[in-house]
């Protein structure tokens, strides 16, 4: 997000954000590593990690699941969006060790190239991306958005807090935490609408 409140993070070019490992080497003596068990995309995984490792770095650097992307590393872009116990969060703003026993779904776990998740297929069909960098986060987020609407969770544009209308305004507001530098927004919304209508 481009905002004067975020002057400092912008001094690092997006994408050049150091992994926590790299910045750790430059930092003080490391604390003992901790053991962690996670279910990632349905598989049990065990890790031994410095407590500083974020969930995003654990996925990308330790489990080699590089589908989830690091854009800002500060909760401002949504490229790192994953589902934890079914809810979308920014994996860059949480420590892996805080997720002992949790179940994490990344873009790799939603579907495979041979058997795409309906949302992945819709993004392809509607050209919901250009460079593709934000896309894993967009897709994880949009899968969760449809669940949130179904669960009756209101948004800023919900007129009647007791009854949520399905529609483009709701989707745009709920997807505002996912920034697309290529501005593929109209096609992203088309893709989500299609999946929403199929599901309805």
């Amino acid at each position: 997000m481009i905002d004067d409140a975020h002057a400092a993070p912008r001094r690092q070019a997006p994408g050049s954000a150091m992994t926590s490992e790299a910045s750790m080497a430059a930092g003080s003596a490391a604390a003992p590593r901790l053991d962690l068990r996670l279910t990632v995309n349905g598989k049990e995984r065990s890790l031994r990690l410095d407590p500083r490792v974020t969930l995003l770095d654990a996925l990308r650097e330790h489990l080699r699941l590089t589908g989830s992307k690091k854009g800002c590393d500060h909760g401002q872009c949504g490229a790192c969006t994953v589902l934890v116990n079914g809810r979308r969060i920014n994996a860059c703003l949480t420590l892996a060790v805080m997720h002992e026993g949790d179940s994490v779904t990344t873009i790799e776990g939603l579907g495979t190239p041979e058997a795409l998740h309906p949302m992945q297929a819709a993004f392809v069909r509607h050209d919901g991306f250009q460079c593709g960098y934000c896309t894993p986060g967009q897709i994880c987020s949009s899968v969760a958005v449809l669940e949130e609407i179904r669960a009756g969770i209101p948004s800023h544009v919900t007129e009647d807090l007791e009854r949520i209308e399905f529609g483009e305004a709701e989707l745009r507001e709920r997807m505002s935490g996912n920034i697309c530098r290529c501005a593929a927004y109209p096609n992203i919304i088309e893709a989500i609408r299609e999946v929403q209508e199929q599901g309805a």
Binding site: R88, S155, T158, G177
Partner: peptide, 27 residues
């Protein structure tokens, strides 16, 4: 999203959903 908050303290629901993003509010 709590039904009691939406019904009796709507100003609080409204303020919450005006802040941050869906991902951040989940955390």
């Amino acid at each position: 999203a709590d039904p009691r908050v939406r019904r009796d303290y709507a100003v609080l629901s409204r303020a919450l959903v005006a802040g941050a993003s869906g991902q951040l509010r989940n955390k």
